[in-house]
Amino acid sequence: MTDRIYIRPIALVPGPQTEHGNAIRLAGGMVYASRFAVILRREGQIAERWLAAPDTMAEVLGQLPDAVGAEAEAQWSNLTLAHPPIELGARTVRLDQPQVMGILNVTPDSFSDGGAHDSPDAAREHAAAMVEAGASIIDVGGESTRPGAKPMWEGDEIARVVPAIEACAGMGAAVSIDTRKAAVMEAALEAGAHLVNDVSGLTHDPRSAEVVARAACPVVLMHAPGSGEDLHEGGAYDNVVFNVFDELRARRDAALAAGVEAQGILLDPGIGFGKSLADNLALINALPMFHALGHPLLLGASRKRMIGALSNEVAASDRLGGSVALAVKGMDAGVQLHRVHDVPETLQARNVWRGLRDAALTDFSDLPD
């Protein structure tokens, strides 16, 4: 008999005063949670579900089977865990508010902007524009991971990404390398990258965890169901939210066992990778639960096909509205990093969102103590 426990925030509020203090600050950010579902799964099925608030959580956790008690306590602690900033070269990226990671694809075949930035001059110009707009990190990728894309030899990928990374690092940007190959990670880090963003969660290349651990650099572990060249294969779930949660926890644990530093791990549920429209919508609605894993979250939903599926199949280049809507939904869930194509527009939405959050903290200032 296999029992698993999950604590899912189900009521988010503008500030603790709206609940007379009976709310937690979710993951140390600008979002507060006041009600939670504590869900016990047994053999893959929901066995019991309790509702709790911060002042009743101890009572609910005390009713749980011994086999899941320690995990439940850890998840409850993680939901309130404030994450320290990540140091990326000379840049410090705070995680107590949403930050924007700008996408720099130096590929001819990416699903949304293939070929637009694959020359050195075009890449440098686009990166500079994103940095000037306020992107906290530039994420450089040299291999398309869209469905059906052909895998690339690591030497070709290195030749694509290194000049772009050097250019970004030269302008003082914090740089991420979007790759699943250890040799590319090594070359990128040598060229000035500060963070590894691996869409395979360090599973594609057997050396990748060693490279990250040795470099002691932050790493994003993304969920994708495919274990081979096609990361979109094998996307069959009995419950996509619980399955992705469990698999991200397993990949996190494997990274820790390989020597990767816990404070350097970020998690990404992998929107669009081997997931149906219904799967993607379920994951986005459940984003607050993933804070229970105890690591900062990254959301990469920009221009994804799910937006087209909900919008008369508009082209990827016409998905700005949907991309911003999903980013704001992620902000409402307390997601710390947002990987986007449209940096100025997303940052404008973030700034308005933050203004509303700041104002909400004083909305009830005249209430009696």
Rank of each mutant, 00 (worst) to 15 (best):
T2F: 12
D3I: 12
R4Y: 09
R4H: 13
Y6I: 15
I7Y: 09
I7M: 12
R8Y: 11
P14V: 03
Q17R: 15
G21R: 13
N22G: 13
G28K: 12
G28C: 13
V31K: 01
A33D: 04
F36S: 14
L40F: 10
E43V: 15
G44I: 09
R49E: 13
L51I: 14
A58D: 15
L64W: 05
E71R: 13
E73P: 13
P85C: 14
R94G: 06
P98E: 05
L104Q: 03
N105T: 07
S110D: 08
S110V: 13
A116R: 12
P120T: 11
E125L: 08
H126F: 00
A135W: 05
I138A: 01
S144A: 11
P151M: 07
M152L: 15
E154F: 06
I165C: 07
I177V: 06
I177G: 01
K181P: 01
A183K: 05
M185A: 05
A187V: 04
G192D: 03
A193M: 03
H194Q: 14
N197P: 05
V199M: 01
P206S: 07
S208V: 10
V212R: 09
A213C: 11
A215R: 03
V219S: 03
Y237Q: 04
V241E: 09
F242W: 08
D246M: 04
D246E: 08
R249C: 11
R249W: 09
R249S: 12
R252K: 15
R252P: 13
A258M: 11
G264F: 00
L266Y: 04
L266P: 07
L266H: 07
D268L: 05
P269C: 04
I271Y: 00
I271G: 00
I271H: 00
I271W: 00
N280A: 02
P296A: 12
P296S: 11
G300Q: 11
M306Y: 01
E313F: 06
L320H: 07
G322N: 08
V324R: 02
A327Q: 01
G330S: 02
M331W: 00
D332Q: 10
G334W: 04
Q336R: 07
H338M: 04
L347C: 04
L356K: 07
D358K: 12
A359Y: 09
D363P: 08
S365E: 14
D366W: 11
L367I: 08
D369L: 14
